[in-house]
Simulated assay, not measured.
Amino acid sequence: MARRPNKAVGIDIGTTSIRIVEGNRRGTDFSIDRAYEYMFNEEVMRDGLPEEVDVLGIHLQRAMKQLGGSKEVTMSVPSTAIMTYNAVIDENLKGDELFTTLEANLGQYIPFSADEVMMDCQIIGSSIEEEYKNEVLIVAAEKEFVNSRSLSSEIAGLEVKIVDADIYALTTLLGLKYDFSNFIKQDAIVYIESGVFRTGFFILKGDGTIYAREMPIGGDRLTEMISDELDISMDDAEIQKLNADWESNPILAKCKEAFIEEMVIQVQSAMHAYVPNNPQVSLKQIFVTGGGALVPGFVEALSGSLDRAVERINPSDMVQFNVPGVQAEKFAIACGLAVRSML
């Protein structure tokens, strides 16, 4: 059995920045001892893909030069680039035969051919509904997302050991605090990932995503509101947002409340599209992450509107975060990736 590494680097490539952490493992305890956010000075990423692979590679190289450390890294693809399906398969199919059979019939389970995705599978257990059948989780990632990150990493002189998905990196991190193994078959978790331009809404049950929806709002919407209200450029509005004293500035406070209201309406819509039609699924916990989740008052407003507890994912609750002056919440995905490498 391969020995687990005691040190790992997790890299989260976002729309406007690269977030990198170096994690360490001591027995069953994990710590993050270095973290760095490298801001892009040009448009590098669009919809989770690099505009140009070599340009992303150059920025990765610059970012890693600032952090230093190992050249072996773990990365992730956007949650929206991952598709999962629970298939019921003959229990006699195992190993390579199982993989080959699923790959040959992949179009039956997801709207892509085997040439367009990278596939993996895992036997969950015996099917409850059919005798002599196994329930198998199929996970597929669109190749262009995986390949673009691998090629950019090669240009940067890095070796990618693992390519995960954002949503599974977060699940790995949360697994250090919560025991999801106690969940029964119909228990599920809600993840809300607020990005720059869009927000992802995901429901996970077991190891698979059973519902995904992309909402047309992100942190940039708040920047736009501030820009309109103050009649300033988007760049200046972004500075105002990042340095806002929400309580003392009534215009900024008005923008913040309007943004929160729009975000809450979008999440409510996603919940209402799923919950009434799936009464058998029990939503046990709701987690939020990303820039929008950091807006003061958002978590409280969302919790009140849904009448459910909502938790902002903070790596400091799961690992020892030893980087002063850094907002740990921004590095949740990168932390999950580093931990994933050391498990």
Rank of each mutant, 00 (worst) to 15 (best):
N6A: 13
T15R: 00
I20E: 00
V21T: 05
E22K: 10
R25S: 13
I32W: 13
I32F: 09
A35F: 14
E43Y: 05
E51R: 14
G57S: 03
L60W: 06
L60C: 05
M64T: 00
M64Q: 00
G68T: 02
G69P: 06
E72V: 11
S79D: 15
M83Y: 12
T84H: 12
T84V: 12
N86V: 15
E91F: 08
L93E: 11
D96P: 07
E103C: 08
E103I: 11
L106D: 08
G107Q: 12
G107F: 08
F112R: 09
M119C: 10
S126K: 14
E129P: 01
E135W: 08
E142M: 15
F145H: 11
V146G: 15
N147E: 14
S150Y: 14
S153P: 11
S153G: 14
L158G: 01
K161Q: 15
V163L: 14
V163Y: 12
D164H: 09
D166H: 13
L173S: 04
K177H: 12
K185I: 09
Q186W: 07
D187Y: 05
A188I: 05
V190H: 05
V196C: 06
L204V: 12
K205T: 13
Y211N: 04
A212P: 09
E214Y: 09
E214W: 06
P216L: 00
G219S: 04
D220Q: 10
E224L: 09
I226S: 01
L230Q: 04
L242C: 08
W246A: 03
P250A: 03
C255R: 00
C255K: 00
K256P: 12
F259P: 05
I260N: 06
V275P: 06
P276H: 09
L283R: 02
G290F: 00
G291Y: 01
P296S: 03
S303W: 02
S303L: 02
R308N: 14
R308D: 12
V323L: 05
G325T: 10
V326L: 07
K330N: 08
F331R: 02
A332L: 04
C335I: 01
L337G: 01
L337E: 02
